[in-house]
Design a protein around this nucleic acid. Structure first.
Lengths: 342, 342
DNA sequence: AATAATTATGTAATCGATTACACGAAAGTA
DNA sequence: TACTTTCGTGTAATCGATTACATAATTATT
């Protein structure tokens, strides 16, 4: 019942060769129409299924693509993957997922494993901890496997990327807080080895300067993306001689933590204090005190990454294409920063 | 630079045959120690990488497993996948993900594609819309591919499953609402073709009966898992002659919608009305009015599914193993249902 | 020293599909 | 009729690794 039917079985039954069967099934124009029909009919009758592994070995293409993310159970990464899968599904690619848990070692292992498995492309969000050793990336490129960074990117020749304009995102959020009347705006940033955090920070800074506000080193705190870290940061900021009256956080989770801490101290949001986050996590709009946040359009980012991959694959691999797509961030203004509503 | 090194290249360089190289690399005991060392050293020097596709073709095992879920961008499914990936990583399996978007057609396509790609196992959460045609599942089993259902399961011979005790989850949540003094408890259920919803419903019903409360057909509403559906359901319930004083929802999203609707009508939670949800989505504990919910331990569910798979793979495939693992649900009691705190 | 037993390696088939090349048959041309 | 094209199919190599079987080389046994 479970015996596999091969083109040889079909060939034997029809008294022809496997080559003819193969050609008939692949719509090779050199095959007589009658033969083609007969083969196709017989193949269907015998429940023939092409052996993808044999095809992969012969062609060197596995029809799999690999996706590497820090972790999959975050709404952002899961949404990007959703976008990738949906865009690639009609093209017959399967998506293999790998998690790094922010470990460089794991990232390198995943890169090697994917190359060894002969995936046709790799899309990834790099892990934070900077590593001078680019050998794993180089290995990918040397094997001519298209590599695309999304969101968290690195500057490596030959690698395309799909990111959002984090500078603009930081700028928009900060400008909005200024417009709401905040004058002492603090910033929760993240791992500075990642461009995304550096750029959000720079956008924040520029918005301050463009609007005649002083940039204050003390107002910048580097945190992990967690509720707890946000609480601690808020505590630290409130202990300053001149505490801020707003926070722009590079992480929605840290923003939530800060809000919780502020509320514990009976500081009224948004009247006394405004908060804006980044990523537009689903919970930001669910909260009773909904949280203003910068949307990164993860679904679109995933689809775009997939499209960039499709453009690169099958191209004459002599010409290296390096495409940089930058998506526009979108500020979602909500209660945590809307004084005009009150 | 990117030419692939094969065992033939190594063999040629050492003036031996590929068979010897293969045996040396696979620690075959029949190989002279000196030869083995020489081969291994040379392989490393030449930067040899085993061609996984060739191995897969020869062995019939791809070292890939497939995971099919309705969608990946839900915290629950993403967490299960995380668990699967983490458990399988040390064993060298790669995880291919597929989404059905609740479409039977898509589910069947995914099943066939995965079988065609010769995955070594499939783990999935079935899609709701019931389908009498089990041929896609049968195809998987006929090909001797281990199949494991998690969370949303179906009764099919030869298929193992990892679920939680949904009956108990429904019972616990309802009992808790009763203990808080609620006497008219409504229930938001889901697609009745899925066991998970039926069982949560049955648990709810049994808790009512065990505690001398009447089961009222009018109090049961079938909703989609969305905020909007929860709002509509709450509206409908409040329009009843005797409106309920509590809701046990099979979905956290619907529970949230109901809460929002109740708050809009200035109904005080939990004093006048209690609400409990299901799934323990991250946002339930983030809310200012945190939501009581039943936890399904998705990470553990994923890991357990992976373990069941590992037990089944490599077993003499004459003996069909069918394992049913039922995890215990855990009720997380929060503000939305805790009158004693007030 | 002759034979048996053991050990290490080579030969060739296999997994299933694709495809360059060869060749016979049919059709077209002079 | 004889010769060139065209068409359809067969032959056999290939992708890269594994492995049953055969054989050569070495060691053990009497």
């Amino acid at each position: 019942m479970s015996e596999k039917v091969t083109i040889y079985d079909i060939a034997e039954k029809l008294n022809i060769t496997a080559a003819t069967v193969s050609r008939a099934l692949n719509n090779n124009p050199k095959i007589k129409e009658a033969t083609r029909e007969l083969v196709i009919k017989t193949a269907a009758a015998m429940n023939y299924k092409q052996n993808k592994l044999a095809l992969a070995l012969k062609s060197g293409r596995s029809n799999n693509i690999g996706v590497i993310v820090p972790r999959i159970d975050s709404n952002f990464f899961a949404s990007v993957i959703r976008g990738i899968e949906e865009e690639l599904y009609p093209h017959g690619y399967q998506v293999i997922i790998c998690q790094t848990h922010e470990s460089i070692k794991r990232e390198n292992e995943n890169l090697h494993t994917l190359v060894d498995a002969q995936v046709d492309g790799i899309m990834m969000s790099v892990t934070g901890i900077s590593d001078e050793n680019d050998s794993a990336f180089r290995n990918v490129l040397e094997k001519n496997v298209p590599l695309i960074f999304f969101d968290r990117s690195k500057h490596i020749d030959g690698v395309s990327s799909v990111t959002i304009n984090d500078f603009k995102g930081g700028y928009l959020a900060t400008k909005h807080l200024i417009d709401e009347g905040c004058r002492h705006i603090a910033h929760l940033s993240g791992d500075q080895s990642l461009d995304i955090f550096k750029n959000r920070f720079l956008g924040y800074k520029q918005a301050l300067l463009d609007n005649g506000l002083e940039f204050n080193e003390e107002y910048v705190i580097y945190v992990k993306s967690s509720v707890e870290a946000g609480k601690e940061a808020a505590t630290a900021l409130l202990a300053l001689q001149t505490p801020p009256d707003a926070i722009f956080s590079s992480s929605d989770f840290a923003a939530l933590g800060a809000i919780q801490e502020l509320q514990n101290r009976n500081i009224s949001i948004p009247n006394e204090f405004c908060v804006a986050g980044f990523s537009n996590e689903p919970f930001t709009k669910f909260m009773e005190l909904s949280i203003t946040s910068v949307d990164q359009s993860p679904l679109e980012m995933g689809k775009m990454s997939a499209r960039v991959f499709l453009e690169q694959v099958d191209k004459t691999d002599t010409i290296k294409i390096e495409k940089k797509v930058v998506l526009a961030p979108e500020l979602h203004i909500r209660k945590s920063s809307t004084r005009t509503n009150f």
